[in-house]
């Protein structure tokens, strides 16, 4: 059964693609192999087939026939929209694309990337093999939500989802962009409860998301640039700590600090840091080889942290 339908769909595509003029429905039903049964059954079959081919992204053009024919619409598949055409694509570019698409391993983006590559490989471009690229990518697996989120973004439909955060659980959002940032996936958009642009980690979405049935509910501001909304290092919040580092220890810490004085057992350095928590973790990591001299509040935080671990 599926064989016969597949065969008919292929035959229909071939016929509509081969014709320069529009084919009348009656011509199609008589000449294209696979249309059987009563006139009514054939017509229903044809209507379904057209919908099926369109769902594959194939454009079927409907045109009025010559006045000499009866008043019956005609059909054809315009070659220009059916066929993939990437002028001047080079073998090197094709190789770049293959390497790039291999990053997805077996994640949710891999099948579509691979079928895209396959189509490009059917264009008859000689392959280039002179690329030594070896770097691979390991990242948080993209969640199953990507497809739905893409759809919401393209259709400009609002979404509602539960988010794992201490405060507000249920979020209402106008989704702007899916962001892949340093190996993690995020969604950025206008948070309707907080009235501002916010960033959400996809791994913290709980359960399914709900997408509004309406389309074009919002517009992405034309001057919207994702990079402007990322938490970034701010020179205003850089602090400087003074630490003692034992001789021949903590080479990594030394690399990003400035030597103030050299001692027999310990050298004194000044080191810049942004977040206290992360910096304390780095200090503690070095055990008794690194000692904070100041500022006083950093020292106090360290003592609190250590006492927390000891209790």
């Amino acid at each position: 059964m599926s064989d016969r339908k597949t065969e008919r769909l292929i035959n229909l595509t071939l016929a509509l693609l081969a014709t320069k003029r529009y084919l009348k429905k009656s011509e199609i039903l008589t000449n294209v192999q696979g249309y059987e049964g009563t006139q009514e059954a054939k017509e229903r079959m044809f209507e379904r087939d057209k919908d099926d081919l369109r769902s594959l992204g194939i454009e079927i053009e409907v045109g009025d026939l010559d006045v000499f024919f009866e008043d019956e619409p005609g059909y054809r598949i315009p070659q220009k929209s059916y066929e993939l055409n990437v002028p001047n694509l080079t073998g090197r570019e094709l190789a770049l694309l293959s390497i790039a698409s291999s990053y997805w391993n077996d994640s949710i983006l891999a099948p579509t990337a691979h079928s895209g590559i396959r189509k490009l490989q059917s264009l008859g471009i000689p392959a280039a093999l002179d690329l030594d690229f070896q770097i691979k990518y390991r990242f948080e697996n993209p969640s199953d939500l990507l497809e739905q989120l893409s759809k919401a973004i393209l259709e400009k439909s609002r979404i509602t989802f539960s988010y794992d955060s201490p405060s507000l659980k249920l979020r209402h959002l106008e989704p702007y962009r899916i962001l892949f940032w340093n190996s993690f996936w995020y969604l950025i958009g206008m948070d309707l409860d907080r009235k501002g642009i916010r960033l959400f980690k996809l791994s913290r979405f709980l359960g399914d998301l709900e997408m509004s049935k309406k389309k074009n509910e919002f517009q992405i501001p034309s001057d919207f640039v994702v990079a402007n909304f990322l938490p970034k290092s701010d020179p205003e919040i850089v602090h400087t700590a003074r630490v003692e580092i034992r001789r021949d220890c903590a080479a990594l810490l030394r690399r990003r600090g400035e030597l103030i004085t050299q001692g027999t057992d310990f050298d004194t350095y000044e080191i810049n840091y942004e977040t206290e928590r992360a910096f304390l973790r780095e200090i503690v990591w070095h055990g008794t080889n690194v000692r904070i001299i100041g500022p006083e509040n950093l020292k106090t935080s360290l003592i609190t942290l250590l006492d927390g671990a000891i209790k």
């Binding site: 992204g57 066929e83 993939l84 990337a113 189509k119 490009l120």
Partner: peptide, 16 residues
Amino acid sequence: KPRNMNRAEMTSLLVS
């Protein structure tokens, strides 16, 4: 000739 790419294929390639 191959079929044109669909939206999902194009998106995946651009992200890659």
